[in-house]
């Protein structure tokens, strides 16, 4: 029981660490919150809604994303897209990620 809980916590922490990179990488084109959630899930990354939506707002506050409200199908939706600053940062983040993957591969193989 305790082991399952620990494993869940570790997995949650690992996922939390990659959500920023995952979200930025998938916001080259505008997406609204729910569509991004589905897109990430389709690609195999299940993200908790309570984590993703506040995170998008935080990334916007930090200047890495931009957002705009659009009226579609009789309801407004907030679309997020990567900002110029986010675009500058993304390659660096990808490089960091590649470094981490390579180090961890060496450790775990």
């Amino acid at each position: 029981m305790a082991n399952t809980e620990s494993l869940e916590n570790v997995v949650l922490e690992l996922r939390r660490g990659v959500i920023v990179l995952a979200a930025l990488s998938q916001l080259g084109l505008p997406e609204y919150g729910y569509s991004l959630l589905k897109k990430l899930a389709d690609l195999g990354l299940d993200v908790d809604q309570g984590t993703l939506y506040p995170l998008l707002r935080r990334l916007e506050t930090q200047g890495l994303l931009e957002s705009v409200w659009k009226l579609e199908e009789a309801r407004p939706r907030r679309y997020y897209v990567i900002s110029a600053e986010g675009k500058k940062l993304l390659p660096k983040m990808k490089k960091e990620w590649a470094g981490i993957v390579s180090v961890m591969d060496k450790m775990l193989s």
Binding site: Y32, G33, Y34, S35, Y53, R75, P76, R78
Partner: peptide
């Protein structure tokens, strides 16, 4: 600030979820 904005976005998300 932005309480209204959060409420509006939440409502929009819930509507999307329901429709889906």
């Amino acid at each position: 600030n932005g309480r209204e904005d959060i409420e509006k976005e939440l409502k929009s998300t819930l509507e999307d979820m329901l429709e889906d």
